[in-house]
Amino acid sequence: MDVRHVQITGGSSFMITLPKEWANSVGLNKNDTINVQAQPDGTLLLFPRGVQPLAQKRTSKSIDVTDVTDLKFIYRELIGAYIAGHTTIMVKSAQPMSKELTSVVSSFVQTAMGLEMIEADESHILIANLIEHEAIDMKKIVERMGSLVKNNVKDVYHAVQTGDYSRIGNMAVKDSEINRIYWLTHRQYNMYQKNLTSLTKDGPSMLKFTGCLFLSRVLEGIGDHVVSVSKFILGIKGGGSPIKLDPFVAELGERIIANLDLSIKSWINLDIELAHQAIKEADELVIDAERSMVGNLKSSERSSLNAVLELFTIVVAEYCKYISEFSFSASME
């Protein structure tokens, strides 16, 4: 670390000299201006006018698929390039691309937010991001994600109790909306890390951005479990009729939906009272669901769905605790 001594000029102004090597590397000359920005942690960020922060520069990622036959691997490469924050993604091949490969790229573009396929032929596909990074409010998109996850959990219990399975028949499609918000949140977090000028004294801190990323990851995990439970229900449903649930399991469903809502609210408002209440109720849910499972293991009349939903309650309750515990810590900032 380069240490500079503070000097006083004119009797009241504080002054330090700039490292010559750095000044030369950014092309700084006499009478040039430098932006000075105070950071939430008390440090100063200096950058010459006309020099773009890394996150504002246009970057491109090239993916060569010539010898790649695993389409899932290619899909994950595309997701990784998107999350890394590249402005454009070039998919290229020395051989004509197969219809299957083109379909995978097209599916990715349709799923990820803000992307368009602007060039395409048999040897290359150029994908461009059209969303302005600074225009996105991470907290609002994560709040929307929470609303989607909560509604999907509600749909699971509604389907079982009413026999209306239409709400969970396309759960994988609805979950893709949750995934695309998670990708965008992760991308935004990486962009903010590259561009500290986004963090102003009165604006959001990196802790808040970390909280958005953390919550989106937890919600994405709950969404995946909802998809798995929905597949199980669709596999055992009988002719569109309701599936018999233990009254206590149905009650657990109502309680876990309320707990998820409370946990998300505790994060949105950074309310330690709500967070504490949500953690307490989640602990009680886990205890009650475990006791119910153990007490009914030997019952031959008990359906497997009851056990699956009890386990689902335990998993979601643990996720809710993660959210509320983070809310508690973040509120102490």
Score class of each variant (00 low, 15 high):
E100Y: 10
K61T: 05
N259C: 13
D283F: 10
T88R: 12
T210E: 13
Q95C: 01
S292G: 07
L28T: 06
V316H: 12
I131D: 02
K280F: 15
V226L: 10
L285N: 13
V156K: 10
L115D: 06
T17M: 15
W267F: 10
V3R: 15
M171A: 07
S198N: 07
S60P: 03
K92F: 05
I89H: 02
G85N: 03
H276L: 15
T88L: 08
E122C: 02
M145I: 00
D271S: 07
H186Q: 14
V6F: 13
L78H: 00
Q95N: 10
E333S: 01
E318P: 03
L45Y: 09
N129D: 14
I268E: 10
F312Q: 04
M117E: 13
L18E: 07
S299M: 00
M117G: 02
G240P: 00
S98H: 04
S263F: 04
G238S: 09
P242A: 01
I34C: 09
T210K: 09
I287A: 14
E177Y: 11
R291I: 01
V109A: 13
V149A: 03
V153P: 12
L44W: 12
T9L: 14
R302G: 00
I141E: 01
E77L: 11
T43K: 15
D164A: 00
M191Y: 10
G85E: 02
F328G: 03
L199I: 12
L213S: 11
E290N: 09
A289G: 06
M145F: 02
K150H: 12
L71C: 06
F47M: 13
I243R: 01
M332H: 08
F214D: 05
K92A: 04
R144E: 07
Q110G: 08
E177L: 09
G42S: 04
V105D: 04
K57T: 12
S123Y: 13
S25C: 06
R49H: 12
V109M: 06
S241M: 00
N179L: 00
I181W: 04
S60K: 13
I181V: 14
L219D: 01
K231C: 03
N259Y: 04
L71G: 02
G146Y: 05
V105S: 09
F214P: 01
I314W: 07
L311E: 09
V218C: 05
K280N: 15
E77A: 04
M90Y: 12
T43V: 10
A128Y: 12
I118A: 14
L44Y: 15
R302H: 06
D224I: 03
G203Y: 14
T88C: 09
D261F: 05
M97E: 08
D2G: 09
R180P: 00
K231A: 11
E220C: 02
L45S: 05
N35T: 08
E100A: 14
H276K: 15
E132H: 11
N269R: 11
D202E: 09
A289I: 01
